[in-house]
Structure formats: C-alpha cells, structure tokens
Amino acid sequence: MLHAYRSAGYGPGKDVVFVQHGMLRNGDEYRDFWIPAADRHGLLIVAPTFSNDGFKGAENYNDGMVRDVKGQIAPADTWIYRVPALVAAALVEAGVMAPGRARIFGHSAGGQFLHRMVSLVGFGPFAAVAAANSGWYSLPTLDTPFPAGLAGTGLGEPGLKRLLESPLHVMAGSKDSEATADNLPSQPEAVAQGPGRLHRARNYHAVGKAMAGILGCAFNWRFTEVPGVAHDGRAMSVAAAGIWFDDRLPDVAALGTGPATVNA
C-alpha cells in the first residue's frame, strides 16, 4: 500500500520524499508528519506501507524478509528492501517523478529497514538516505550473521566498502536513550550494541568508522544527534526535513518536542 501527499507546488523535477514507517505500520501518519515540509518546499511525499497482516513481525519488515521461515538466507530478489526502488522506478516511468529526485527517510523500525537496505542493495535511486532512531543495527562486519551483522548475505568486501563509502545519514534523538524504552529490541545481540537507541546509533557509527580504517576505504556516513528529542517520529521527520531542505537542524522550538506518541 502507498500513502502519498502531493503539495500544490509539486511538479516533476522537484524532490520526492519516501518515508518508511515504524513497527506500527502507520505509513499514513508518517506521510502526515512530512506535509508541512511538503507545502513549504513543493514536495511529493510517498510512504510505502507494509501491513502487519502481510508482513508480520520484525523478520518480515525490519529485516526485509532476508531470511526464510527456516532462518536461511532467501533469494535476494525476494527481499522487500527492493520495494522502494521499484516504486521510484514506477513513478519515473509514469512521468510523476524525474530521475534522481528521490530521498528516503525512515524512523525506528523504518530506520532499521533503511540501513539494512543500504547495506544489502545500496542507495539505488535515492539521492539521500536517513535512518533515524533505529532500535538496533546490522553492524558492518562480515564475521557476524545477519541481522546482527552482514555475514551470510552474499555481501563481500567490495559491498562492505560500498556501504562505508556511501553517504548514509544516521540520526538519533538525544533523549532516545532509555534502556527500558517501549519496543526497544532486547535480544542479547541488540543489548550488546548499547543500552538505548542513542547509544546503539553512536556504536553503529563508530564501528563503521573503525571498519573503514581496517579496509582502507573512505568513510562517508553522517551522524546527527537531534537535541531534546526522544522516540518521536514527527520530531525526527521535522529534523530531517530541516537538514535536507533548509540546510540546518531546526531549533528545539521548531521540533515541537513533547510526549512521544509514535513509539515505532
């Protein structure tokens, strides 16, 4: 399912923002978080939505259906990490979007989806990828099985270098740090990455930087801590929009932080 919003100022040749929802599968809400930015900047917002009925559980969304029901790596052409690129291609073919104008943002489970998408299939048609407040990460290592690492997926050293050299943007709210937060992954591999989402994001970035040093490749990831924000998909959407379209992180008042009503 696609939830979309076309601003009055949008036309082919302007930017399109894809948005990946969290575990609540609320693509309509995540689309709505981006409407103010769309109206200001003349954007089209597209939120591919994976229902829990059809893609039940983390293994069938966050983990991209990379593993089958027996836990074995499934054929790459069945991974749902390819879906956003297919939607983008369809929009280009239909004349709705110009090539090279798509960006993609994901929050919580959507952040997990996106950093794993970039790890395994690359940026594809997206000029920018921002993964925010992910619960945990597939570390950029080939000696730890997926989803804790990338071993067994068919990714080799060239693919790992491509990942580290990509401009992946990792974002985390400075207050998304509670070790007992709702819906925080708690399996041992996740806990080993840090007590809360902020710590795990810092760790992911640090491991990536260290791995780039080991492989002797460039490290082009960006890491942004958003001040005053906890696990809030709306506030993180505002932050990403500010960085992308105003070239700055909005101030705390503009983020409008309050009780986090979107937990995933």
Rank of each mutant, 00 (worst) to 15 (best):
V121L: 06
A264Y: 07
R67E: 09
A47R: 12
R101M: 12
K175L: 15
G122W: 11
G22I: 07
D28P: 00
K56Y: 13
T78F: 00
M171G: 00
F105T: 04
A181Y: 03
P140N: 09
F113W: 12
D232G: 02
A201L: 05
D53E: 10
S119C: 06
A254V: 15
I45G: 08
W221E: 12
G95R: 13
G9S: 01
H21E: 09
A206E: 08
V17L: 15
L164N: 01
M211E: 14
F146W: 08
G149Q: 06
N26D: 13
V66T: 06
R162N: 09
M65I: 05
G152L: 10
S237R: 10
L198A: 02
G57W: 08
V46R: 12
L139E: 09
R101L: 02
W136G: 04
F113C: 10
P75C: 07
K14T: 10
L120C: 04
D176S: 07
P185W: 07
D182N: 12
T141Y: 03
S119Y: 03
Y61N: 14
A85S: 12
A172N: 00
F219N: 08
R116F: 00
A4P: 00
N220W: 07
S177F: 04
P250K: 10
A47W: 08
G194P: 01
A239M: 10
F223I: 04
G156V: 05
F55P: 11
A181T: 04
L215A: 04
A148D: 12
D77E: 15
F105D: 09
G122D: 05
F219Y: 15
N220E: 14
H205W: 12
N62C: 05
F223L: 13
Y137P: 09
L160K: 02
E178I: 03
A4D: 07
F18G: 03
I35D: 01
E189K: 02
G213Q: 11
D246V: 06
D182C: 09
M236I: 10
A254N: 06
A253Q: 15
P84R: 05
E93H: 12
M236H: 14
H205G: 02
G213F: 05
A74C: 04
N26M: 11
S177D: 15
Y10M: 04
I73R: 03
I80M: 14
R202D: 07
A212V: 05
A210T: 05
D176M: 03
A4L: 12
R202S: 06
A4N: 00
A74K: 01
D182F: 12
D53G: 09
A88F: 01
W221A: 06
P125A: 09
A47E: 11
M1C: 09
A253W: 10
Y30M: 14
G156N: 08
V46K: 14
F146D: 06
V19N: 01
G122Y: 04
G124Y: 05
F113D: 12
Q20F: 07
A4Y: 10
I104S: 08
M23S: 14
L44W: 11
A240Q: 14
A4I: 01
F123I: 08
A210H: 00
L2Y: 02
A131V: 03
